[in-house]
Design a protein around this nucleic acid. Structure first.
Lengths: 337, 337
DNA sequence: AAAATGTTTGCAATCGATTGCAGACCGGTG
DNA sequence: CACCGGTCTGCAATCGATTGCAAACATTTT
């Protein structure tokens, strides 16, 4: 590329215009509305554009257009492979639409409210995908200058914001129904944080499907450590009181639960059946392979991106986009021994 | 907050200035260089600032200052929990310095060169952290208007760019030395893609430490599927030809390898010892818990962020920042049976 | 040939914050 | 009282692309 840059060392739109012998307006139009420009002019400009190696200055365009070209995803825990997978689908979809994906972890950097304030700003991002249900509806008040917010995975009961979610009740029902069909009558549940909507929805689904079955709740928070703790609790029960099947609200908890039971000599599924939730990639590569409820992670990300893009474009968007869970039957469930 | 917004509905610096009875210059200085402003003025402005609920327009500031406030991380596979964890450390460090973290997956969205071109643009990001070693030095030519690039985890041999990397050779040596100490004389290696620098460095470290030991290389690519394939290969060998210990260049391969051997009736570590690489969070919660080489993931992310921030600030930065691996002794290794 | 219609282009204002420069103001000194 | 040095503030230009408006030109109609 030639050096047609100005003194600042960078090629500007006006440099290209000078090269092509037209005004900056025309060059801008060639870039954004090619069909308003006459064939011959367009070609001349196109040539100048690539001879000069012109790269647009995004700050300038964004200032003028009042947009940012970014969508931010606020994730409760980036380290969780489940969320990471969702981001993949999201990133693709956004990139295809010309948007960049900004990522912020709401767990560690400051508090969630602080992070929210930081990004609920039309000059920071054109749209927000919130994967953390701990925000309050008030914090998300739809001011006139607030970029559109879409809730994904988790949601907030009283917030009038579009959601892209799994049918968690149904997912739980799938798990419980499966265990009942195997003959289990006493089911342990390793839950999430009591205030968490996913916990609540899954628990509701579990209770509905359980009907006459006995349930024992082990507290949890979706983490590996919670799985360990549940294993301790289970082992501490008198053998007759131990549920013969356990439904964990995350694969990670299921995983840690199984491993720690194993260390205590209890085998899965011989002594306990286990069902997880999420279907993280590793689930099918464990021994025994984890029976679990699959969330279509990539799709969740893709759909969330589509909804936020539609909202940005000012289109009407569905209040709720619900995805279907699926029972992945593998090796950790069996009839009670 | 009062509504002091202009007709566009948004409070601008000039609105605040009018409220405080000063010029925009002064308001700007209160925000960016408070010590140039007299006490009394500063207070008046500060009051106007929060009474109006002013939020700065980033596009405008960025245009004027010639920066973006973003750093982009180019990740080969976001779905990999290893990379996800690195991003956590990175995100924190950047947020603390007032930078946003942009994430792009180089695996799926278009080709790596396309993604590179997209982000090697001073108006898109102020700095780049490249975690994908498949770029060529030529693509990263240090033009005058190219934001600083830092290589992390992976690197590119002939590129004169700062790196933040693990001492991979030493990591491999730790693994092999451990296996030798247990009495193993024939070690299988499940590698990465042959062209991958991590593969090469770890293989070199393995060879150095192996000396007189026998090595058998199973091809791989760090994925779960590669671990499965390696299991098939291992099982296909005549029993006398099977290495009694296997060193996998990623935890995911180790994991899948162990699971599939288990399905074929081979137990770890009774029949084979296995060492992984990375120490993903799940590694210690498997059964048996995976012995592995730990990479300080969060630190890697933090350090990479620090280096790129220093480069952005125009400071001299170390050509290489090397982090130390650590052998995590767990349950998958034992003396040969 | 004049008028009407449609297409293409350029002028110049605009988005909102930052900053070099110079003027205003202060108290203190000769 | 004039002058000096220092501190604080405002003016106005600037970053670079976009776009409403109107001028210039081409084409068709009457």
């Amino acid at each position: 590329m030639d050096n047609h840059a100005g003194p600042q060392g960078r090629v500007r739109l006006s440099d290209v215009a000078r090269m092509a012998g037209v005004s900056t307006a025309t060059v801008s139009r060639v870039l954004s509305h090619p069909d308003m420009v006459a064939e011959a002019t367009r070609l001349a400009v196109a040539q100048a554009l690539d001879r000069s190696g012109y790269r647009m200055n995004h700050a300038a365009r964004n200032l003028r257009k009042g947009r940012t070209g970014c969508v931010v995803a606020l994730v409760p825990n980036l380290g969780n492979p489940f969320f990471a997978k969702i981001l993949v689908g999201m990133g693709r979809e956004l990139a295809a639409a010309g948007y960049d994906l900004l990522v912020a972890d709401t767990q560690d950097q400051g508090s969630l409210p602080a992070t929210l304030r930081r990004f609920l700003d039309p000059s920071r991002a054109d749209g927000i995908i919130l994967l953390d249900g701990r925000a309050s509806a008030a914090q998300l008040a739809p001011g006139p200058d607030r970029p559109p917010v879409v809730l994904a995975c988790e949601w907030i009961e009283d917030a009038a914001l579009p959601r892209v979610v799994l049918d968690n009740q149904r997912g739980a029902a799938l798990a419980v129904t499966h265990l009942r069909a195997l003959g289990h009558r006493h089911i342990g549940v390793i839950g999430g944080p009591p205030a968490n909507v996913l916990h609540q929805a899954r628990l509701a689904g579990t209770r509905d499907a359980a009907q006459d079955l006995r349930l024992t709740l082990f507290p949890g928070d979706f983490s590996l450590q919670a799985g360990q703790a549940a294993a301790r609790h289970w082992l501490a029960l008198a053998p007759a009181e131990r549920p013969g099947a356990v439904f964990a609200f995350s694969d990670e908890m299921a995983c840690a639960f199984i491993a720690d039971l194993g260390r205590a000599g209890q085998r899965v599924p011989r002594d306990v059946s286990v069902v997880g939730f999420d279907d993280i990639e590793l689930a099918s590569h464990l021994l025994p392979a984890l029976t679990t409820i699959r969330q279509p992670k990539r799709d969740l990300g893709r759909k969330a991106a589509q909804v936020v893009l539609a909202a940005i474009a000012g289109h009407e968007v569905a209040a709720v986009t619900r995805l279907e869970p699926q029972l992945m039957l593998r090796e950790t469930t069996a009839p009670p021994g």
